[in-house]
Amino acid sequence: MQNKWIKLKKDSWKFFFLLPLLLYLAIFTLVPVIRSILMSFEGGNNYAWLFSHFRFRESLVNTILITIFALLFEFLFALAIALFISGGGRRRIIQALILIPLGIPTIVVASNMRYLFDTNGFINTILTRLGVVGIPIDWLGGGALTLFSVVISDMWKVTPLMMLILLAGIERIPKELFEAAAIDGVGFWQRLRYIILPLLKPFITMALIIRGIDTFRIFELPLALAGESFPVLSSFAFFEYRNYNNPHTAAAASTVLFVLILIAIFIYLKLVGLPNEETT
């Protein structure tokens, strides 16, 4: 007991240096989050109203679908690219090229993607000129096509981030394992299934959680691409607050988003386990 006390006393300077960060987090993150949750219970039964509202239900479904499809495709593409560029000399150049989209602001990405997906945009021009379609496809008018456009746009921007995390994981796998597998004549798919994926699990967890949280909060992309015809939870909350002066329903929608993120993290950790479990 005394030893513990001495150790704590000895480490107290570390807490002292951590204090500004903790205070910052408490004031600018924790307090607003708690305040927002409390606000969501003020001014009537906001949750009952939310779930009875067709726009909110649409936002909820759109957010969940974007998250599922974006994560799935981003993961598959990121893994493929990471496997392709790991190890070889081509790595640095390709890695640098692939990272470019990460540096572009989301709103700029959305504007550029509008040039692609607009009814008289690049994709429709090509498709109509090649005679693939007779009339332009309405990519951004809502529904499954808009979901697809948003997912593709999101993928273009953030797949490099996921790729970087997975690449770091692949680079950490001991070379001897691959050498032993090669001697035993193990093929690519078996290597992937029995060596790479199991050892990559902590990195996959980290990548999916980081990207999952981010994708749930998606805002500018669907808003700039499709406007209000394709609402998501964060844009719904934004319009509630800004257009309709309704901070309580905006807070309730934000709280639903927050709970959704917590549930997703909890389920994923339950299914896959904490990142440290694999490495320790």
Binding site: G141, G142, S229
Partner: peptide, 21 residues
Amino acid sequence: VSRDSLKAKWNTSNDYIARES
């Protein structure tokens, strides 16, 4: 009506008519 109507705001509408969509 044009499907672009779903995205037509005051600032974007000019582009639609100018680009003849």
